[in-house]
Protein backbone atom coordinates (compact mmCIF):
# COMPACT_ATOMS: atom_id res chain seq x y z
CA UNK A 1 0.00 0.00 0.00
CA UNK A 2 2.68 2.38 1.03
CA UNK A 3 4.84 1.53 -1.93
CA UNK A 4 2.06 2.42 -4.34
CA UNK A 5 2.11 6.02 -3.13
CA UNK A 6 5.84 6.50 -3.43
CA UNK A 7 6.39 9.09 -6.12
CA UNK A 8 8.86 8.14 -8.80
CA UNK A 9 11.41 10.61 -10.17
CA UNK A 10 9.08 10.98 -13.12
CA UNK A 11 6.17 11.95 -10.89
CA UNK A 12 8.27 14.52 -9.08
CA UNK A 13 9.36 16.14 -12.34
CA UNK A 14 5.79 16.28 -13.58
CA UNK A 15 4.71 17.84 -10.29
CA UNK A 16 7.43 20.46 -10.68
CA UNK A 17 6.16 21.18 -14.16
CA UNK A 18 2.64 21.68 -12.80
CA UNK A 19 3.82 23.85 -9.92
CA UNK A 20 3.55 27.34 -11.48
CA UNK A 21 0.02 26.72 -12.69
CA UNK A 22 -0.91 25.21 -9.35
CA UNK A 23 0.25 28.39 -7.62
CA UNK A 24 -1.83 30.37 -10.11
CA UNK A 25 -4.90 28.29 -9.28
CA UNK A 26 -4.34 28.72 -5.56
CA UNK A 27 -4.02 32.51 -5.85
CA UNK A 28 -6.63 33.31 -8.47
CA UNK A 29 -9.18 30.52 -8.12
CA UNK A 30 -9.01 28.97 -4.65
CA UNK A 31 -8.24 32.03 -2.51
CA UNK A 32 -11.35 33.81 -3.85
CA UNK A 33 -13.37 30.67 -3.08
CA UNK A 34 -12.25 30.95 0.49
CA UNK A 35 -12.91 34.69 0.29
CA UNK A 36 -16.63 34.11 -0.18
CA UNK A 37 -17.02 34.02 3.59
CA UNK A 38 -16.91 37.79 3.21
CA UNK A 39 -20.61 37.57 2.33
CA UNK A 40 -21.35 36.44 5.89
CA UNK A 41 -19.21 39.15 7.49
CA UNK A 42 -19.32 42.85 8.06
CA UNK A 43 -16.02 43.44 6.36
CA UNK A 44 -13.89 46.32 7.55
CA UNK A 45 -10.25 46.66 6.57
CA UNK A 46 -8.31 46.86 9.84
CA UNK A 47 -5.58 49.50 9.76
CA UNK A 48 -2.13 48.00 9.54
CA UNK A 49 -3.45 44.47 9.12
CA UNK A 50 -3.38 42.29 6.04
CA UNK A 51 -6.50 41.50 4.09
CA UNK A 52 -6.87 37.94 5.36
CA UNK A 53 -6.47 38.98 8.96
CA UNK A 54 -9.01 41.77 8.54
CA UNK A 55 -11.37 39.33 6.92
CA UNK A 56 -11.02 36.72 9.64
CA UNK A 57 -11.39 39.29 12.41
CA UNK A 58 -14.40 41.04 10.88
CA UNK A 59 -17.69 40.42 12.65
CA UNK A 60 -19.85 37.49 11.55
CA UNK A 61 -23.29 38.75 10.64
CA UNK A 62 -24.84 35.50 9.41
CA UNK A 63 -27.19 36.02 6.52
CA UNK A 64 -27.82 39.70 7.24
CA UNK A 65 -26.22 40.79 3.95
CA UNK A 66 -28.59 38.53 2.03
CA UNK A 67 -31.62 39.69 4.06
CA UNK A 68 -30.90 43.37 3.41
CA UNK A 69 -30.04 42.72 -0.23
CA UNK A 70 -33.42 41.09 -0.80
CA UNK A 71 -35.15 43.94 0.97
CA UNK A 72 -34.04 46.22 -1.89
CA UNK A 73 -36.02 46.26 -5.15
CA UNK A 74 -32.73 45.65 -7.03
CA UNK A 75 -32.58 41.98 -6.03
CA UNK A 76 -35.76 40.86 -7.75
CA UNK A 77 -34.96 42.89 -10.87
CA UNK A 78 -31.44 41.57 -11.33
CA UNK A 79 -32.39 37.95 -10.82
CA UNK A 80 -35.37 38.26 -13.14
CA UNK A 81 -33.26 39.95 -15.81
CA UNK A 82 -30.36 37.53 -15.60
CA UNK A 83 -32.50 34.41 -15.82
CA UNK A 84 -34.98 35.71 -18.38
CA UNK A 85 -32.33 37.06 -20.76
CA UNK A 86 -30.27 33.90 -20.50
CA UNK A 87 -33.26 31.64 -21.06
CA UNK A 88 -34.18 33.54 -24.21
CA UNK A 89 -30.55 33.78 -25.37
CA UNK A 90 -30.01 30.03 -24.94
CA UNK A 91 -33.18 28.93 -26.72
CA UNK A 92 -33.17 31.52 -29.52
CA UNK A 93 -29.41 31.31 -29.98
CA UNK A 94 -29.45 27.55 -30.28
CA UNK A 95 -32.41 27.45 -32.69
CA UNK A 96 -30.85 30.10 -34.93
CA UNK A 97 -27.33 28.69 -34.99
CA UNK A 98 -28.41 25.08 -35.59
CA UNK A 99 -30.77 26.21 -38.36
CA UNK A 100 -28.06 28.35 -39.97
CA UNK A 101 -25.58 25.48 -39.81
CA UNK A 102 -28.06 23.13 -41.46
CA UNK A 103 -28.77 25.69 -44.17
CA UNK A 104 -25.18 26.66 -44.92
CA UNK A 105 -24.15 23.00 -45.17
CA UNK A 106 -26.57 22.74 -48.11
CA UNK A 107 -25.25 25.65 -50.18
CA UNK A 108 -24.13 24.48 -53.63
CA UNK A 109 -21.18 26.85 -53.74
CA UNK A 110 -18.65 25.87 -51.10
CA UNK A 111 -16.73 29.05 -51.82
CA UNK A 112 -19.70 31.21 -51.00
CA UNK A 113 -20.22 29.19 -47.83
CA UNK A 114 -16.60 29.81 -46.85
CA UNK A 115 -16.76 33.56 -47.47
CA UNK A 116 -20.06 33.87 -45.62
CA UNK A 117 -18.69 31.90 -42.68
CA UNK A 118 -15.65 34.15 -42.46
CA UNK A 119 -17.71 37.33 -42.57
CA UNK A 120 -20.16 36.05 -39.98
CA UNK A 121 -17.30 35.11 -37.66
CA UNK A 122 -16.10 38.73 -37.41
CA UNK A 123 -18.38 39.93 -34.56
CA UNK A 124 -17.14 37.08 -32.38
CA UNK A 125 -13.64 38.61 -32.34
CA UNK A 126 -14.75 42.10 -31.31
CA UNK A 127 -14.92 43.38 -27.77
CA UNK A 128 -18.15 44.64 -26.29
CA UNK A 129 -16.62 48.12 -26.10
CA UNK A 130 -16.20 48.13 -29.86
CA UNK A 131 -19.71 46.72 -30.25
CA UNK A 132 -21.02 49.52 -28.05
CA UNK A 133 -19.59 52.05 -30.51
CA UNK A 134 -21.26 50.19 -33.40
CA UNK A 135 -24.55 50.32 -31.55
CA UNK A 136 -24.08 53.99 -30.72
CA UNK A 137 -23.57 54.86 -34.38
CA UNK A 138 -27.07 53.52 -35.03
CA UNK A 139 -28.85 54.61 -31.84
CA UNK A 140 -27.30 57.98 -30.95
CA UNK A 141 -30.19 60.36 -30.28
CA UNK A 142 -29.00 63.23 -32.48
CA UNK A 143 -26.57 61.64 -34.95
CA UNK A 144 -27.55 57.97 -35.10
CA UNK A 145 -28.70 56.41 -38.36
CA UNK A 146 -32.01 55.24 -36.95
CA UNK A 147 -33.13 58.70 -35.89
CA UNK A 148 -31.91 60.31 -39.11
CA UNK A 149 -33.99 57.74 -40.95
CA UNK A 150 -37.04 58.35 -38.76
CA UNK A 151 -36.76 62.07 -39.37
CA UNK A 152 -36.56 61.54 -43.11
CA UNK A 153 -39.71 59.46 -42.91
CA UNK A 154 -41.35 62.34 -41.05
CA UNK A 155 -41.51 60.50 -37.73
CA UNK A 156 -40.52 61.60 -34.25
CA UNK A 157 -36.94 60.65 -33.32
CA UNK A 158 -36.63 58.36 -30.33
CA UNK A 159 -34.30 58.79 -27.33
CA UNK A 160 -33.14 55.18 -27.63
CA UNK A 161 -30.86 55.26 -24.60
CA UNK A 162 -33.72 56.52 -22.42
CA UNK A 163 -36.48 54.18 -23.58
CA UNK A 164 -36.38 50.81 -21.82
CA UNK A 165 -39.03 49.06 -23.91
CA UNK A 166 -36.77 48.66 -26.94
CA UNK A 167 -33.78 47.24 -25.12
CA UNK A 168 -34.76 43.61 -24.53
CA UNK A 169 -35.06 43.34 -28.30
CA UNK A 170 -31.81 45.20 -28.94
CA UNK A 171 -29.88 43.10 -26.44
CA UNK A 172 -31.22 39.87 -27.91
CA UNK A 173 -30.31 41.07 -31.40
CA UNK A 174 -26.77 42.04 -30.37
CA UNK A 175 -26.28 38.78 -28.54
CA UNK A 176 -27.41 36.73 -31.54
CA UNK A 177 -25.46 38.93 -33.96
CA UNK A 178 -22.25 38.50 -32.01
CA UNK A 179 -22.53 34.77 -31.42
CA UNK A 180 -24.18 33.32 -34.50
CA UNK A 181 -21.05 32.98 -36.63
CA UNK A 182 -19.26 31.10 -33.88
CA UNK A 183 -22.23 28.84 -33.14
CA UNK A 184 -22.84 28.13 -36.79
CA UNK A 185 -19.22 27.15 -37.41
CA UNK A 186 -19.23 24.92 -34.35
CA UNK A 187 -22.31 22.97 -35.48
CA UNK A 188 -21.15 22.96 -39.07
CA UNK A 189 -17.92 21.25 -38.00
CA UNK A 190 -20.03 18.47 -36.47
CA UNK A 191 -22.31 18.25 -39.51
CA UNK A 192 -19.43 17.85 -41.95
CA UNK A 193 -18.04 15.15 -39.66
CA UNK A 194 -21.12 12.94 -40.13
CA UNK A 195 -20.44 9.78 -42.13
CA UNK A 196 -21.69 10.31 -45.70
CA UNK A 197 -22.74 6.65 -46.05
CA UNK A 198 -25.60 7.32 -43.62
CA UNK A 199 -27.08 9.78 -46.08
CA UNK A 200 -26.49 7.45 -49.03
CA UNK A 201 -28.42 4.69 -47.31
CA UNK A 202 -31.21 7.12 -46.55
CA UNK A 203 -31.40 8.30 -50.16
CA UNK A 204 -31.67 4.73 -51.38
CA UNK A 205 -34.59 4.32 -49.02
CA UNK A 206 -36.11 7.40 -50.61
CA UNK A 207 -35.68 9.78 -47.68
CA UNK A 208 -36.48 13.41 -48.43
CA UNK A 209 -34.08 16.20 -47.45
CA UNK A 210 -36.20 17.05 -44.46
CA UNK A 211 -36.30 13.41 -43.34
CA UNK A 212 -32.50 13.23 -43.64
CA UNK A 213 -32.20 16.24 -41.35
CA UNK A 214 -34.71 14.86 -38.88
CA UNK A 215 -33.46 11.28 -38.72
CA UNK A 216 -29.73 11.64 -39.38
CA UNK A 217 -28.32 15.15 -38.94
CA UNK A 218 -30.17 16.23 -35.81
CA UNK A 219 -29.67 12.93 -33.94
CA UNK A 220 -25.97 13.07 -34.83
CA UNK A 221 -25.78 16.63 -33.52
CA UNK A 222 -27.52 15.73 -30.30
CA UNK A 223 -24.40 15.12 -28.18
CA UNK A 224 -22.80 18.47 -29.01
CA UNK A 225 -26.13 20.29 -28.61
CA UNK A 226 -26.55 18.69 -25.19
CA UNK A 227 -23.02 19.54 -24.06
CA UNK A 228 -23.35 23.17 -25.13
CA UNK A 229 -26.77 23.23 -23.49
CA UNK A 230 -25.46 22.03 -20.12
CA UNK A 231 -22.62 24.55 -20.29
CA UNK A 232 -24.99 27.44 -20.99
CA UNK A 233 -27.43 26.29 -18.30
CA UNK A 234 -24.51 26.29 -15.88
CA UNK A 235 -23.99 29.95 -16.71
CA UNK A 236 -27.64 30.95 -16.46
CA UNK A 237 -26.88 33.14 -13.45
CA UNK A 238 -23.96 34.86 -15.18
CA UNK A 239 -24.25 37.48 -17.85
CA UNK A 240 -21.97 39.26 -20.27
CA UNK A 241 -21.10 42.38 -18.29
CA UNK A 242 -20.09 44.25 -21.43
CA UNK A 243 -23.41 43.57 -23.12
CA UNK A 244 -25.48 44.82 -20.21
CA UNK A 245 -23.25 47.64 -18.96
CA UNK A 246 -21.13 48.98 -21.83
CA UNK A 247 -23.55 48.59 -24.71
CA UNK A 248 -26.45 50.49 -23.02
CA UNK A 249 -23.80 53.01 -21.82
CA UNK A 250 -24.79 52.45 -18.20
CA UNK A 251 -27.83 54.59 -18.89
CA UNK A 252 -29.92 55.29 -15.78
CA UNK A 253 -33.40 55.05 -17.31
CA UNK A 254 -32.57 51.60 -18.69
CA UNK A 255 -31.65 50.02 -15.36
CA UNK A 256 -34.87 48.03 -15.14
CA UNK A 257 -34.07 46.11 -18.30
CA UNK A 258 -30.27 46.07 -18.19
CA UNK A 259 -29.40 45.36 -14.57
CA UNK A 260 -28.17 41.79 -14.32
CA UNK A 261 -26.41 40.22 -11.35
CA UNK A 262 -23.00 41.00 -12.80
CA UNK A 263 -23.88 44.63 -13.40
CA UNK A 264 -25.24 44.98 -9.90
CA UNK A 265 -22.23 43.31 -8.30
CA UNK A 266 -19.90 45.64 -10.18
CA UNK A 267 -21.88 48.77 -9.35
CA UNK A 268 -22.35 47.82 -5.70
CA UNK A 269 -18.63 47.11 -5.38
CA UNK A 270 -17.14 50.07 -7.25
CA UNK A 271 -19.84 52.71 -7.24
CA UNK A 272 -21.72 52.33 -4.00
CA UNK A 273 -18.79 50.70 -2.26
CA UNK A 274 -21.23 48.29 -0.66
CA UNK A 275 -19.12 45.17 -0.17
CA UNK A 276 -21.81 43.41 1.85
CA UNK A 277 -24.51 43.50 -0.83
CA UNK A 278 -22.07 42.96 -3.60
CA UNK A 279 -20.47 39.89 -2.08
CA UNK A 280 -23.84 38.44 -1.13
CA UNK A 281 -25.08 38.76 -4.71
CA UNK A 282 -21.81 37.33 -6.08
CA UNK A 283 -21.90 34.34 -3.73
CA UNK A 284 -25.51 33.62 -4.58
CA UNK A 285 -24.58 33.72 -8.25
CA UNK A 286 -21.78 31.19 -7.74
CA UNK A 287 -23.83 28.81 -5.60
CA UNK A 288 -26.87 28.89 -7.86
CA UNK A 289 -24.60 28.35 -10.87
CA UNK A 290 -23.10 25.27 -9.20
CA UNK A 291 -26.57 23.91 -8.44
CA UNK A 292 -27.94 24.49 -11.94
CA UNK A 293 -24.97 22.96 -13.75
CA UNK A 294 -25.09 19.90 -11.50
CA UNK A 295 -28.84 19.54 -12.05
CA UNK A 296 -28.56 20.00 -15.81
CA UNK A 297 -25.79 17.42 -15.93
CA UNK A 298 -27.86 15.00 -13.84
CA UNK A 299 -30.80 15.32 -16.22
CA UNK A 300 -28.60 14.85 -19.26
CA UNK A 301 -27.01 11.79 -17.64
CA UNK A 302 -30.50 10.29 -17.35
CA UNK A 303 -31.34 11.09 -20.99
CA UNK A 304 -28.04 10.23 -22.65
CA UNK A 305 -25.21 9.03 -20.46
CA UNK A 306 -22.48 9.66 -23.03
CA UNK A 307 -23.31 13.33 -23.48
CA UNK A 308 -22.90 14.19 -19.80
CA UNK A 309 -20.21 16.71 -18.98
CA UNK A 310 -18.99 15.00 -15.82
Amino acid sequence: MRKKWRLSADDIELTLLALPTTVWYLLFAYLPMFGVIIAFKKFKPLPGKGFLESLLKSKWVGIDNFKYLFATPDAAIMFRNTIAYNAVFIVVGMLITVTLALMISQLHSKRLAKVVQTMMFLPYFLSMVVVSYFVFSFLSADKGVLNVLLKQLGMEPVQWYMTPKYWPGFLLFINVWKGMGYGMVLYLASITGIDASLYEAAIIDGASKWQQVKFITLPMLQPIILILFIMSIGRIFSSDFGLFYQVPRNSGPLVDVTQTIDVYVYKALMGMNNIGFSSAAALLQSVLGLITISLANLIVTKVDKDSALF
Partner: peptide, 14 residues
Protein backbone atom coordinates in the same frame (compact mmCIF):
# COMPACT_ATOMS: atom_id res chain seq x y z
CA UNK B 1 -13.04 26.07 -10.51
CA UNK B 2 -15.06 25.25 -13.64
CA UNK B 3 -18.05 24.56 -11.43
CA UNK B 4 -17.63 27.05 -8.63
CA UNK B 5 -15.89 30.38 -8.42
CA UNK B 6 -15.39 32.88 -5.65
CA UNK B 7 -17.01 35.60 -7.69
CA UNK B 8 -15.95 39.10 -8.56
CA UNK B 9 -15.96 40.62 -5.07
CA UNK B 10 -13.71 38.10 -3.40
CA UNK B 11 -11.36 38.05 -6.39
CA UNK B 12 -11.22 41.84 -6.52
CA UNK B 13 -10.50 42.23 -2.81
CA UNK B 14 -7.84 39.53 -2.81
Amino acid sequence: PMLFGGGLVAAYLI
